[in-house]
Design a protein around this nucleic acid. Structure first.
Lengths: 117, 117
DNA sequence: ATATTACATTGACGAATGACGATTGAATTG
DNA sequence: CAATTCAATCGTCATTCGTCAATGTAATAT
């Protein structure tokens, strides 16, 4: 949870005494910050963000060969970005025959979304 | 805006004909995706996310010397992360005497937040 | 069996990132 | 003045990232 910092503007400070008292940082927030940062990081690329956008709007499932032509990068690169999103827990996939269908994991964005609000 | 993709599962496809018809991607979304991705990218580091968290919760202004001891990195590194956040438009700063006070730019996270909801 | 299609993986590359120590600059204090 | 403090910047380094060409793998079609 939040650290309670002094808001008062600093003024004359005795010499030899550094800026402020050491503030203990509760690491309860630490793990949470790492989870949310990893999700944000995965969204921190225009192609990945648009991939999520398309997959979200078509809540069903879209195969990769439909996603690839949407971007100016090759198929392996799209596959790579999908892997990054999968490893971040944002999407998952299911194979049907030759095709791979990706979809957004519903609860994946909840924590970050809640934090932003 | 969203691309309207066919949701129907693929079946037998004539030989010599690739996966799907070329889909025109409206680049209206492109610039928006780049803006949101750059914000997400800036939030994609635990330290930066916690910096924003602290600055948001203490809506006023916090000097850098109070932020530094919260993390296990040196002062130049905190300064670097603040610069990244500033360049992403997420925070801004104001100097008062020796101290620099950072604060979150209110509308900076709006677009990404809205997209996530 | 052979060819074709969809997708993933590998390895390579230049570019960007996160961290540090050292230094600099500006404002304050003695 | 000189010394001190806060914060930014500069180099440097190791790591990670985004992309590609090439290849691998599995399923399908002829």
């Amino acid at each position: 949870m939040p650290v309670d910092l002094q808001m008062v503007p600093k003024q004359k400070r005795p010499v030899g005494q550094p800026c402020c008292d050491p503030v203990v940082y509760p690491d309860t927030e630490r793990a949470e910050a790492e989870r949310m940062a990893s999700v944000a990081k995965a969204l921190g690329d225009p192609i990945r963000l648009q991939l999520v956008d398309v997959l979200r709007k078509h809540a069903g499932k879209v195969c990769v060969c439909e996603l690839t032509p949407l971007f100016d990068v090759g198929q392996p690169t799209v596959s790579h970005h999908l892997k990054v999103l999968r490893q971040a827990g944002i999407v998952d996939s299911e194979r049907r025959g030759l095709w791979a269908y990706y979809y957004v994991v519903p609860e994946a964005l909840e924590e970050l979304t809640a934090w932003l609000n």
